[in-house]
Design a protein around this nucleic acid. Sequence first.
DNA 1: CTGTTAGCGCATTCAA
DNA 2: TTGAATGCGCTAACAG
Lengths: 365, 365
Amino acid sequence: MARVNIRDVADRAGVSTATVSHVINQTRFVREETRRKVLEAVEALNYHPSTIARGLATNTTQTIGLIISDITNPFFTAVARGVEDEFNQFGYHTIFCNTDEDSAREDEYLRLLFAHQIDGLIIAPTGVHSDRLLRIAEAEIPIVLLDRAAPGITAPLVHVDNEGGAYQATRYLIELGHRRIGILTGMETISTLGMRVSGYRRALQEAGISIDEALIIRADPRFHKNQLYPSDSLLWGSITNLQMTPNAFLALQKLLDLPDRPTALFVTNNQMTLGTLHAFKERKLHCPEDISLVSFDDHDWAPLFAPPLTVVRQPTYQLGQTAAKLLLKMINHQEFENPSPLPVELIIRESCAKLSAHAPLKVAA
Amino acid sequence: MARVNIRDVADRAGVSTATVSHVINQTRFVREETRRKVLEAVEALNYHPSTIARGLATNTTQTIGLIISDITNPFFTAVARGVEDEFNQFGYHTIFCNTDEDSAREDEYLRLLFAHQIDGLIIAPTGVHSDRLLRIAEAEIPIVLLDRAAPGITAPLVHVDNEGGAYQATRYLIELGHRRIGILTGMETISTLGMRVSGYRRALQEAGISIDEALIIRADPRFHKNQLYPSDSLLWGSITNLQMTPNAFLALQKLLDLPDRPTALFVTNNQMTLGTLHAFKERKLHCPEDISLVSFDDHDWAPLFAPPLTVVRQPTYQLGQTAAKLLLKMINHQEFENPSPLPVELIIRESCAKLSAHAPLKVAA
DNA sequence: CTGTTAGCGCATTCAA
DNA sequence: TTGAATGCGCTAACAG
């Protein structure tokens, strides 16, 4: 059965296609009676305008692209939900793309999305320079940067107060008496993580604690979850820009093997937190008795862990929502102001202990 | 800057648009030299065929729809990832839609997707009868049912062995000596959950344990996570077909208040598991000493809980992948056979104890 | 207040 | 081996 089109409706209502189009889009006045006839025909024939034909005519598709690292990462799933909810309200569709932090995949997706004529793009960039992204920006497709900056791109950035959150977390550990505080973080290309390291540094400096670079671990975050996904999936494919970074699991082991190992650890994302917890377990390191832990990003399950996790909570859902609202404004050529960072919050649970409760390790006064 | 189109390329290469089209789609032979010239022009102009114009011409969009309950639910995020990875390999885009188990939202999405001319649909239906879904099926758009059956729709169903998994879980509890085993489950409209209850019943019957209907709790699963999402979001909007079911948190409380409360609990999805654990915590009920727990669906974080969770693991990623592969076959008019249920696996960790270790509750011999 | 008509960018039939 | 011409379904001038 062929798809019913605007011609069919027009014929049935005894009007022109222009009139049909106008009653549907409410784009010019139509006499009430004609209007009714058209609507009746639409109903009777169960007519749905083809978004794609409309797209060709108006050069607009009512769909936007969302490029993130991995929908499987709880941070991004909440963000994605925020984006989706917001756009859906206005009849927009969103196409999800997972880069796995692989700039080659990012590039490929950019190509596909552009070919699909998206009306706008929200992207958490991998951080490696992208000609294609530049060209898309030049093509005047509205772009909003999500969570991270992109080299060479001047688009509004929707993000949380990463520096401040890291500062709070570190300061909290310091107040508990910790002096040797390790930080586990990911690739430098991700601007967010850079900000978190900055916050960590600032807290230490303010407290007059000298910074030991050996305690700052940058690594490939992919060291958990192999158990749940088949290795032959695309999940852990060739992630080019990760290959040179040391594996986080190994890096963490080395940190814990240090003669004066840290008494506390600040882990800068939830992926790594999972891995860290596994590492603790394997080593029979008890948290917080043996080592304190605070991590970035909260989740439903964080309070149910052993121990319940002290975290820096970020407003993930709102992050997505904010980005979507902003992009919508840009698409509609409305005024907008550059967003200010969303506030984060330190949620204290039970994964940190006062230093005095620790085994007496060597501590810089 | 106007978008470069096939005309531009043709002009620059000194050929007709037909030729350009043919070299791009490899749809008829073109002399090597002409071919080269075209390719050069494509490169030089940075030409990307408009998928949408192509769609109008070929009546195909290279995009498929994925309707699930909630991308925020780890089960569905893994499934979604499987779907996305598979389709992306073949140049398809996937549009995600979250129904929140609300049939009205489902209907709205169906409308949007149809208007968008999707080439195929993967759907985990809410389970309430949908005229629109029927009509879409009649319009001969390929559909695959994901995880759940839909009333009145005869499309292939990709699912796991729910009945068997529930049977295994229940049987395991029985072998540990439990006799009063509760089951916490959701809406009857979701066929998957019905299968799980069946497996539970079969295990009990085989063991000669009479079934106490008071131990079978059906409820609205939405009793956790209010903390992370703002109440003004769409998340917990008007979910029409849930409103009459009792709140799971309350239902669980009632179950635990029973004079001879169950010594073990089988919770049929991860959402409810989270809620259950919170309820235990609130009541200071220790698991597994006070009560054993096995739940459906595994996750990265399940082993890190207190206690590490014994679960029925389902191959979530493969579930999505399988559905996608199948839909692809249907779209390409290839032969396919109806999928058989994917196997599940009981993962024993530490949330179940032998009954003898329990406080001496009244037990039916 | 409504109809005619020319594209939007591409695939494809027919002709050469 | 290639071109010219038509149409996919809709919108938006322009005309009346």
